[in-house]
Design a protein around this nucleic acid. Sequence first.
DNA 1: AAGTAATCGAGACGGTACGTCATGTCTTAGC
DNA 2: GCTAAGACATGACGTACCGTCTCGATTACTT
Lengths: 193, 193, 193, 193
Amino acid sequence: MPASPRVRSGNRRDEAARLAVLHAADDLLVSHGFAALTIEAIAREAGVAKQTIYRWWPSKVEILLDTLIGDTVKRLRVPEDSSADSLRGYLVTFARFVTEDPAGKVFLALLAQGQHDPATAESLRKRYLVPRRILERELLARAVAAGEIAPVLGLDALLDALFGPIVYCALTGSVVNAELIDALFMSLVRPCG
Amino acid sequence: MPASPRVRSGNRRDEAARLAVLHAADDLLVSHGFAALTIEAIAREAGVAKQTIYRWWPSKVEILLDTLIGDTVKRLRVPEDSSADSLRGYLVTFARFVTEDPAGKVFLALLAQGQHDPATAESLRKRYLVPRRILERELLARAVAAGEIAPVLGLDALLDALFGPIVYCALTGSVVNAELIDALFMSLVRPCG
Amino acid sequence: MPASPRVRSGNRRDEAARLAVLHAADDLLVSHGFAALTIEAIAREAGVAKQTIYRWWPSKVEILLDTLIGDTVKRLRVPEDSSADSLRGYLVTFARFVTEDPAGKVFLALLAQGQHDPATAESLRKRYLVPRRILERELLARAVAAGEIAPVLGLDALLDALFGPIVYCALTGSVVNAELIDALFMSLVRPCG
Amino acid sequence: MPASPRVRSGNRRDEAARLAVLHAADDLLVSHGFAALTIEAIAREAGVAKQTIYRWWPSKVEILLDTLIGDTVKRLRVPEDSSADSLRGYLVTFARFVTEDPAGKVFLALLAQGQHDPATAESLRKRYLVPRRILERELLARAVAAGEIAPVLGLDALLDALFGPIVYCALTGSVVNAELIDALFMSLVRPCG
DNA sequence: AAGTAATCGAGACGGTACGTCATGTCTTAGC
DNA sequence: GCTAAGACATGACGTACCGTCTCGATTACTT
């Protein structure tokens, strides 16, 4: 199997090129950091022409969002089960995602880039934060309805209070304390029983 | 008063140039965003030679850190008084700083840039986060010793739990809820009396 | 004729850009001297990006060499005819070239720059001096074979003896004496008859 | 003898600094070429402040001229004796000077720089070329008067015809042929007897 | 002996150009 | 109509020198 550069698809969008771009972006971010994540580097790494990237993505941020959304579906599912335990488990999973998973680095990078560029902030919010937030709010609502938890706060504020510290620790490079998650959970979510 | 564009200082560092750079960086960040904050733009805006910037600052991040540290001293003092009330007031001040003060934008931009560049993360931590954290830990310790509060967590974790949600809301562009701060304060800090 | 700043050539080298660079370099050298001949000035004058210059030429010296070679082909042809008269005419043409023609200024500038930079010296020699010298030697050889001249020196030394004084006068800003050329020609080349 | 960097001369011009600058310029030209001969490099090499150079020399060219004039007096004397032989010897000495002596490199560099900058050309002419030319013309005049030579050309043109080829060979990096000097001497100067 | 003046080293300053890199737009030619 | 390839104008990067300047020290002439 010498080269087989890739079968050209001719008229249609080349799925292989799409995947190659997504993987190249992901790999570069993890291996060399956001600073090295240039369109030219992605094209080089993916073996794809620059124009092919510009044709399908308006910016490198959207590429990262595509990989992040894909990876989140695979590795950071919002649980269906609304027990207090599965809720707590979700917090722990999120903490691991954000500190250890390469896709978590993508999330942090996008959150960061959102501070430098309003368009990124808007995209991240619309395509990622809001949809997740809806799922999470529903999860909490189900748990409240089931009498599993009795939060001391409105659902949105509660979610900020729970995820905020985890994200902040990840951003500042502190370890995310298990004690911290426990205390937040006990004090704010108030599991019943 | 004819012209006098600026008095040259000759052999010594030119204080006027230093201030011009700091202000230019601050202004550009606020007015055009981090993306427009290039060394050339700062030099242009400040009426200063590029080399003068490179002579004194290793990167634009250090310029921003200088402005941030200066502004924090002026507008985000850690209170001396260790009452529960002044502690809560500090949280509110921080929330306003981070969402409304131009210097707060600088802080968020640096936190963000730290995700893209480890050197920034390290500088921010050493020159800003750690010194502030020390002061805040001492504040909490005094309050505990005075019997003003009875926190449910270790001091570091507690600080992350308190500031994390505020920073997270600022990063995602959500409003920082007063209810949120209250609930965190009541549930985690547990003011006595 | 609306605007049409220049038609972009896309994938291929842009011939218009190439010519614009050559002319800009030539014009700048003649109008403002070698000191003003910076890559940035050429790019400005030619309405071309700096990178376009660096893509095709390793240095401004090679740009000048390109113009010199082109101009020499047009205005300083080595004669085909090997009569003593045409040989003498060639010397006179060379003297005019080197003192009056803008392309002659380019030649002198390159010869000069060769003293400051060995790479220039090497390029000038390989791309200009040696090829011309070959043609001139052949010319002399033909004239000797035809019995037109009977030089008192080897061909290479003879060429140095003939062109050296002309170049030296041009370099020092002296006028190139017609008497000088005649005397050299009579004494060293020794036309027969 | 620990350091003794140099004795300060106080009010007067510091002769040691003057010499250090001349030697540094000379050394740098020979060792690293004209391109590396910057005022800053000379100051560095000489252990002298930049301002000290600017105070006494209007440009680096004048520094080189100072060294050249000094070295010429020492190593390229125009002979007093007006015999044909000593005249021929002078030509050979000049050829060696220009191809082997470091001071010869200085001469070529200045001649070259004169092509890039009219002020240099003017200085070189006034301070070096013209004074030498006067001496050389006198030498020839004495030789003619003494019946030692019978040149076929006016004295100035003759000098150009003699030195031109030597300089040209030095400029193009060719070897200066002994045969060449002989032929020029015999054909143009025509020594009697 | 005290004051004046010029020199020196050091080095900051506003500039200009360097050569490199990534941007996003474009055209070509092949499938 | 997609693709790989890559030229192009733009503009920032960080570095090196330019020539001017100001400083504080040193030393020699004046009074």
